[in-house]
Write a protein that binds this DNA or RNA. Structure first.
Lengths: 151, 151
DNA sequence: GACATATAGTTAGTTATGCAACTAATATAA
DNA sequence: TTATATTAGTTGCATAACTAACTATATGTC
C-alpha cells in the first residue's frame, strides 16, 4: 500500500522540488556571474516596480505572493541597498508607497536580459504550445487553492 | 521595449511565485490543521526515507534538491524531534546513514493522506493528460539546466 | 609510506519565509 | 463623539536556504 500511494503527489514534488529550484538557482547564478548583487527575491519586487512604480507594500506582497512581514523585510533590504525608498501616502498615512531610486534604474535592462537568457536556457526544445499548457494548468492550480478559502 | 520584454519570463513567475507557493502553503496548512507538527521540508526528507530507509545525507540532499549544508540542518531538526537518527556507516566513516525512528512511523499513513488531499484540492478539474504534459515539461526544464553544467 | 587530492558532513554568516502579537492610523457604529 | 473594529506595516521567534570556509576520513600517486 505505502508503495502505491501518493501518485499524484509526485507532481507536487516535481513542480516544487525540481524545476522551480533549478530555474531559481540558475537565475541567481546568472545574476551573480554578471556582477548583479541582488537576490532573485529582491528582483521580483523590482520587476513589479518597473512595471508600475509607487505600489504599496501590501500590493507588492500580493503581486509577489508574500505575506506582509516578508514584504517588509525585503523592502528593508532593498532600502539598505538604496534601490527603493518608502514614501508615506498622503491620503492614508498607514500606507507606504515604494518607489525605485535612480540606483535601481540601470538594473532593469541587464536583469531583463539575464532573465530572458535564463528562460531560453530553461525552455530549450519546449514548444510554445507546451508552455501555454503549463502556464494554464499552474494558473488553475493556483485558482483551485486561492478561491476556496485562504491558502 | 521594456514593456514587450521578458514574455517567457512570466513562466518562471507563474511556476515559482504562484502555484508552487500555493501548493506548499496548502500542504503545510493541511498538516497543521491535522495536528502534524512538522514542516513540509522535513516531510520531504521523511518521504524519501519511507521509500528507502538508511540513505546517506548526501543522497537525501540529492533526492530533495538541497545542498549538503541545508540537509545537515534539516536532519538536525528531525533528530531533535526524534524522528530520525544518524548512524555512521561502517564502510566509510565520513558517511552518516539516516534512519527513521519508531516515532516517525505513524506519520507516514496520515501525511500521505494529507498529501493526497492537497493534490486533490490542487488538481481539481485538471485532466490526467494535462498533468502528464506539465510533469514532462518540468522534467525537461530541469534537465535543460542540470545537464549542461552545475546549476 | 607520505603527500596531495577528493569527499561527507559541519559551522558561520546572510537572506528569506511564515505565524503571531503588536502599533498606529483609519473607518464604522452607537 | 466616543468606543469598536479594521487595515497597513513592524517586530519577535523559529525554520530554512545558499555560499564559503572548515574538519575528518578516504583515495591516489609518487
Amino acid at each position: 500500500m505505502s508503495n502505491n500511494q501518493f501518485k499524484r503527489g509526485e507532481l507536487y514534488s516535481v513542480i516544487n522540488g525540481m524545476a522551480t529550484t533549478a530555474v531559481a538557482r540558475r537565475l541567481q547564478k546568472n545574476f551573480r556571474n554578471a556582477g548583479i548583487e541582488i537576490t532573485i527575491e529582491q528582483w521580483s519586487v523590482l520587476y513589479h516596480l518597473w512595471k508600475e512604480d509607487g505600489l504599496s507594500q501590501l500590493e507588492l506582497g500580493n503581486r509577489t505572493f508574500r505575506d506582509k512581514a516578508s514584504t517588509t523585510r525585503l523592502i528593508d533590504n532593498l532600502e539598505k541597498q538604496e534601490l527603493v525608498t518608502r514614501v508615506a501616502s498622503k491620503d492614508d498615512r498607514r500606507i507606504n508607497l515604494v518607489y525605485l531610486t535612480d540606483t535601481a534604474k540601470p538594473l532593469q535592462q541587464i536583469t531583463y536580459e539575464l532573465a530572458n537568457k535564463t528562460m531560453n536556457e530553461s525552455l530549450q526544445n519546449i514548444t510554445k504550445e507546451e508552455i501555454e499548457v503549463v502556464k494554464n494548468v499552474l494558473q488553475r492550480v493556483y485558482d483551485n487553492l486561492m478561491n476556496k478559502d485562504l491558502i
